[in-house]
């Protein structure tokens, strides 16, 4: 199974069927398959869990117990902009928890339709501690973060400016 490119979200059942139909069935491949679906759709739609259950002959209960166990997978679509702040020890020592709280407050002040465009989450160290504290804006890493820098990032994304460094 190749590493599927993350593409824009289209979770129509046809897309799902075709995509899952192409996954290689191997007994110890369930998590790779879930990765592929997650990468493809930005989450694991229920529809695809059902199809996967058929195709891999794995009970749906097993798929969900796995799906919800691992933080990497989601069962609901991800927001337009995902901000993942590192809460590893180094990043934490360099104030990432405060930045997280600031960002939460910042987002909370936005009007609901704008707030919904953001998904704020945490990760526990990505091994780039020299850049602590850091945030993933989508797949882009931004290091040596400050509350101000974070504010700029959010504002930049809001105004749809691509330049988030």
């Amino acid at each position: 199974m190749g590493e599927p490119e993350p593409t824009q979200q289209s979770s129509g059942s046809d897309a799902i069927c075709e995509f899952i139909g192409n996954l290689k069935v191997e007994n110890d491949n369930l998590i790779l398959a879930l990765h592929a679906i997650e990468n493809r759709f930005g989450y694991v739609p229920r529809q695809s869990a059902l199809l996967l259950s058929k195709r891999f002959s794995v009970p749906l209960a097993r798929i969900y117990e796995v799906l919800t166990f691992y933080h990497y997978f989601r069962t609901t679509p991800s927001a337009e902009h995902t901000l993942t702040i590192c809460l590893g020890t180094s990043c934490w020592l360099h104030g990432s928890e405060k930045i997280l709280r600031n960002s939460q407050n910042l987002l909370a002040e936005l009007p609901p339709e704008e707030r919904q465009r953001f998904g704020l989450s945490e990760v526990r160290c990505v091994g780039c501690c020299s850049l602590a504290p850091l945030v993933f804006a989508g797949k882009k890493v931004i290091g040596r973060l400050t509350p101000d820098k974070m504010k700029q990032i959010i504002e930049g994304l809001l105004s749809n400016r691509g330049d988030i460094s």
Partner: peptide, 25 residues
């Protein structure tokens, strides 16, 4: 899951949020 092979139940989530629920909630 094991005695009855029905797989109606499983645990969802993890840690303190672990809960038992019917297949896929």
């Amino acid at each position: 899951q094991d005695l009855q092979n029905v797989w109606a139940l499983s645990f969802l989530n993890r840690g303190i949020h672990t809960r038992m629920a019917p297949a896929g909630d």
